[in-house]
């Protein structure tokens, strides 16, 4: 199948900084493709160049087979964009915004169902300035969908939302994809990328430092996992250390942390604890995650 987005050797310079430094990637139809990276990594610049809002210094971009610069008007008819930094006039009502934006497009979807779907039906007459942060965000997503786009770009869509609103928004992103649309999701939230994305590119300082499915990225790290439990008294530390696949056993403030890898690592640890009859509570496992991937590739934490 033909790629929805093809980016090759893209460069974009701002003054002395290379915001986008030789990035190549492709996005396939129907996938949620993530662009993950810390603030200032060049994610927004990359996306704004892909949709044609910024002119690249070098390299090539094709979206739906179109050149975002030369064929900008044809392209924006077929894509939906939620920008990280954007606003509407303070005194514009929700329904007026949707009605106005719908008039810009040749092909549109009725906006009343969009209001319902994004929980804005009761706010239809509310002015933009009187919406909460989450409501504004949902309005911008609804505006990005008003032309029934083939590709939707969402730039930091859950920034500023409370945890509950974030989870609700994730469900809605999955719903966009289930309608057959391709989604490009820009985020600096590791958990968001891990939960939502089929594939993702991790960006740092304008470069792609990793690109794969979240599962493959973590597996490629070979970080293994950890079993952690609270123990009081006789834990068979020596026997745990002797298990195949276990690399480290340590005590930390009443917890025992067993690190290791392998398909049977976790079950081996649990079986040994059960067989030895030693008391343990609050047992949990931790997997390596995208944060560890970023750490391994850059030596820094994502959220610094």
């Amino acid at each position: 199948m033909q790629s929805v987005i093809e980016v090759s050797n893209l460069r974009k310079r701002y003054g002395s900084t290379l915001a986008v430094d030789d990035i190549s990637l492709t996005v396939q139809p129907g996938e949620i493709f993530g662009i993950l990276g810390p603030n200032g990594a060049g994610k927004s610049t990359l996306v704004e160049t892909i949709v044609g809002l910024r002119q690249p210094d070098a390299g090539a971009v094709r979206v739906l087979g179109l050149d975002p610069q030369r064929e900008h008007n044809r392209l924006v008819q077929r894509i939906g964009i939620q920008l990280q930094h954007a606003a509407l006039p303070d005194r514009l009502a929700v329904w007026e915004a949707l009605d106005l934006f719908a008039s810009f497009y040749v092909r549109t979807t009725p906006w009343q169902p969009l209001l319902e779907a994004w929980g804005l039906a009761e706010k239809r007459n509310t002015l933009f300035a009187n919406l909460s942060g989450g409501q504004k965000q949902r309005l911008f997503i609804a505006l990005a969908l008003v032309n029934d786009p083939e590709v939707v770009f969402l730039d930091e869509l859950t920034t500023g939302l409370d945890p509950q609103a974030r989870r609700a928004t994730w469900d809605l992103v999955q719903r966009i994809r289930s309608q057959g649309k391709t989604v490009v999701l820009v985020t600096h939230f590791m958990d968001e990328a891990q939960f939502l994305c089929d594939r993702l590119a991790i960006i740092d300082a304008g470069r792609v430092i990793a690109l794969d499915t979240p599962a493959n990225l973590v597996r490629g790290l070979d970080g293994g996992s950890r079993v952690i439990f609270a123990a009081n008294g006789a834990t068979p530390l020596q026997a745990l250390r002797a298990l195949p696949g276990v690399s480290q056993v340590e005590r930390s403030q009443g917890d025992v942390i067993v690190s290791g890898r392998g398909d049977t690592f976790v079950s081996d640890v649990v079986a040994l604890l059960a067989a030895s009859g030693s008391p343990f509570q609050n047992l949990r496992t931790e997997q390596a995650d995208l944060e560890d991937v970023f750490m391994a590739r850059t030596g820094r934490r994502l959220r610094d």
Binding site: V51, A86, F104
Partner: peptide
């Protein structure tokens, strides 16, 4: 003000001329 508040930026991401 429309430029400063990034209202024009949002319009630019549409086919509006």
């Amino acid at each position: 003000a429309a430029r400063e508040q990034k209202i024009l930026r949002r319009f630019r991401a549409t086919p509006m001329r």
